[in-house]
Structures are given as C-alpha cells and as structure tokens.
C-alpha cells in the first residue's frame, strides 16, 4: 500500500529551501494577486477563517441539542437552519444532516471518495479521515475500525456508516453521557470531542476532562 501519511512534515528541520509544492502554491498565489484575481488580504482572511473553525462550534450545537429537546428536533429536521440559530455561519455548506447516536444505534461518518466533512462547524478534517485506509475500511468493517480507535461496541448495537458527498455532509450527535444531569450547557460542550462528532468515539465522561 502506498499510503503517504505526510511523513515529510514530521521532522521540522531548519531547511531554508522550499519544496516543489510550496513553490507551486506561492507562485500561483502571487500570479493570481498580480492579475487581480484575488488580494493578499483575501488570502489572509481565508486562512484566518479556516483557523477560526474548530470542533468547539459543533460541540456547542451538540450541547444545545442535549439540553433542549425542541432544538434537537429542529437539528434533526434541518441541521443547517438549527446551526444558524446559534449564530454559527454555515459558510458554503449545502446540506447538513445531523444523525443521533443512541443506546441502540451508533453512526459513523466517512467520505470514501475524498474528504467531504462539515468544515464550517468542525474545522478541517484530521489526517486519518482523509487517509486511504480509513476511507477504504470503515464502510466494510466499521466495528473493526472503531475498535482500532478504542471504541468497542456490543453486538446488539447497530452500526450505520454514512458516506458523505460534496452536497450532503453529516454531524453525529453523540449520546449524552450518563451522570451529566447537573452540568451546565458550557460544561457539557467540553465533553463533545471532534471524534465523537465523526462517530469514531463516544462523548467524554465528565471525569475525563
């Protein structure tokens, strides 16, 4: 398998030579700026917007769904509209679908064709989500893959895999952990990890943060 897992980024050396691909990006960017197709300021703002999108946004949505059944119902019906209610800009998302994990059902998300992911509310996807092996295996052996991520599910629990497309992206609403009845919405949001919203983990227990 010619999996290429970004090895070249692992050792941070003090090289001053740009790589071939770095040169291509910077060359293209400066030509597009010279030709007036974009400005340096637009590039800077696009990078800032990317940095500002983190799983904390999705966690806020999930925590609200845990404490507010009416909101959860709206989230399950039209996730994009519900997310927008919380003041979160859904950017270029076309359709967002929220899927709920319960005691009997566990959902997990993949994009077998590439890397589609609800970026406006979770940020950029982790490397493994884009990896050829995750994309290949989770659709045929979801339980095995979840086990690799440290999540062993009992046989009675049904597992469903959602394959994303550019037009439909998914947000998993993890099950609310037991023993969290007294927690504030803000504290609940801290239990909602990125991985739990992809479906490769459960939400944290309150004693785990």
């Amino acid at each position: 398998m010619h999996e290429h897992e970004h090895d070249e980024h692992a050792p941070i050396t003090d090289r001053d030579e740009l790589t071939y691909y770095e040169k291509r990006v910077y060359a293209i960017q400066s030509l597009l700026i010279e030709k007036g197709l974009m400005t340096a300021d637009e590039v800077r703002r696009a990078v800032e917007d990317m940095d500002a999108r983190t799983p904390a946004l999705g966690a806020k949505v999930v925590a609200r769904a845990w404490v507010d059944p009416a909101f959860k119902a709206r989230l399950l019906t039209d996730a994009k509209a519900a997310v927008t209610e919380l003041g979160i800009d859904t950017g270029t998302l076309s359709t967002l679908v929220a899927i709920e994990n319960t005691e009997k059902l566990h959902n997990v998300v993949v994009c077998t064709l590439c890397s589609c992911y609800p970026r406006p509310i979770l940020g950029v996807p982790p490397d493994w989500y884009k990896s050829l092996n995750y994309r290949s295996r989770v659709v045929v052996d979801p339980r095995g893959v979840l086990k690799e991520f440290g999540l062993e599910l009992e046989q009675e629990i049904e597992v469903r895999v959602y394959d994303s497309t550019a037009d439909i992206r998914y947000l998993v609403i993890p099950a609310r952990p037991a023993g969290t009845e007294g927690l504030s919405e803000e504290d609940l949001a801290r239990l909602v990890t990125r991985d739990s919203m992809i479906g490769v983990a459960k939400a944290r227990m309150p004693d785990q943060y």
């Binding site: 398998m1 999996e3 493994w128 050829l132 092996n133 290949s136 659709v139 893959v145 690799e148």
Partner: peptide, 13 residues
C-alpha cells in the same frame, strides 16, 4: 476507495 481489500491499519497521527 470504499472497500479496497488490501487496506491496512489506519495511521491516527
């Protein structure tokens, strides 16, 4: 990529 049989472990780094 869905279902390619030779896929190995997932690098979680």
């Amino acid at each position: 990529r869905g279902g390619w049989p030779e896929a190995g472990p997932i690098n979680q780094a």
